[in-house]
């Protein structure tokens, strides 16, 4: 399954960069969302994919059962990243909206001056 996921991550990166290269500022936001998903999946994939063995400790034991359970550390990192990503996104979306209101322009090439 790792090879399929590799293609998925590659596609997400490609799509996000393509969107960030557009002139429309709204498309930049879409690119950002895709990029954050791509990065999270990248960490998730390279840390190894494990089916049906979450890093949980059942009652009465002190370590997860069996030999191969999913690595909890990348999961903790990704969890943080998802939340931070949303914070950045929310801020960016509102900022862009504000910028559009002030400048009246969606084209980044027209937003070249800091005061207007």
């Amino acid at each position: 399954m790792g090879s399929v996921m590799a293609v998925v991550v590659g596609a997400l990166f490609a799509a996000s960069v393509y969107m960030m290269l557009r002139r429309s500022i709204v498309k930049l936001v879409i690119g950002l969302i895709l990029l954050s998903n791509a990065a999270n999946l990248l960490i998730f994939t390279v840390s190894g994919l494990t089916r049906g063995a979450p890093p949980l400790i059942p009652e009465g034991m002190t370590v997860p059962p069996g030999g191969a359970w999913a690595d909890p550390l990348p999961q903790a990192l990704i969890l943080t990243a998802i939340v931070i990503g949303f914070g950045v996104l929310a801020f960016a979306v509102v900022l862009i909206h504000r910028a559009y209101e002030v400048v009246g322009e969606d084209d980044m090439d027209q937003m070249r001056s800091t005061d207007s």
Binding site: V9, G10, F13, A14, A15, V17, L21, L42
Partner: peptide
Amino acid sequence: AVAFSLGTLMT
């Protein structure tokens, strides 16, 4: 093309 090159590299 730029985007595709990055995607391929990541894969």
